[in-house]
């Protein structure tokens, strides 16, 4: 574990009555640092909170916002549940897949954008919705997506997902 990571880990552990509670925040921190949850981060987390690496893996795989493989600087999560489906999400997702040239949970060839289909994002009144780096975008149409994509391509965020 790097000294910096160790320091941050100790701070996080100190926040909770049980060390184990610091597991997810610590993994988020590692993800922000490395871009995704690396094997090293799993090992570090296990050491930090005193559980086996397998148990960390189990937890990490449970949370859809923790990625165990490299992701782009942009993560686009599109709802595939009923409300959005009725609002045209099927066509939207078809459009995005073709436009980016990726399937669900894949990252574009240039490594910039990761695409993911997710369950209900709880904004059914403004369907279809997607999240770009956890920011909601409502009433998305293929055209709206294309223009947003242009904007996103020009930006270069530090990390797709925040540390906390």
């Amino acid at each position: 574990m790097t000294p910096q990571r160790e320091r941050r880990g100790a701070e996080l552990v100190a926040k909770y009555p049980e060390a184990r509670s610091a597991l997810v925040p610590f993994l988020q921190y590692c993800q922000a640092e490395d871009g995704y949850v690396t094997d090293q981060a799993i090992a570090d987390a296990a050491e930090l909170v005193g559980i086996t690496p397998a148990e960390v893996e189990s937890t990490a795989s449970f949370y859809s916002l923790l990625f165990r493989h490299p992701i782009g600087k942009h993560v686009i999560q599109v709802c595939r549940t009923l409300g959005c489906m009725l609002g045209g999400a099927d066509e939207l997702r078809e459009h995005i897949r073709t436009r980016l040239g990726v399937e669900n949970l894949e990252t574009t060839a240039d490594g910039a954008i990761t695409y993911e289909e997710v369950e209900c994002l709880a904004a059914c009144d403004r369907a279809p919705v997607l999240q770009h780096n956890l920011e909601f975008v409502y009433n998305v149409t293929p055209e709206k997506f294309d223009s947003l994509l242009e904007t996103w391509r020009r930006e270069s965020p530090a990390a797709a997902l925040p540390a906390e």
Partner: peptide
């Protein structure tokens, strides 16, 4: 108490 067998994903 070996904790190598896990549930992955959800």
């Amino acid at each position: 108490q070996e904790r190598t067998l896990i549930v992955e994903d959800r």
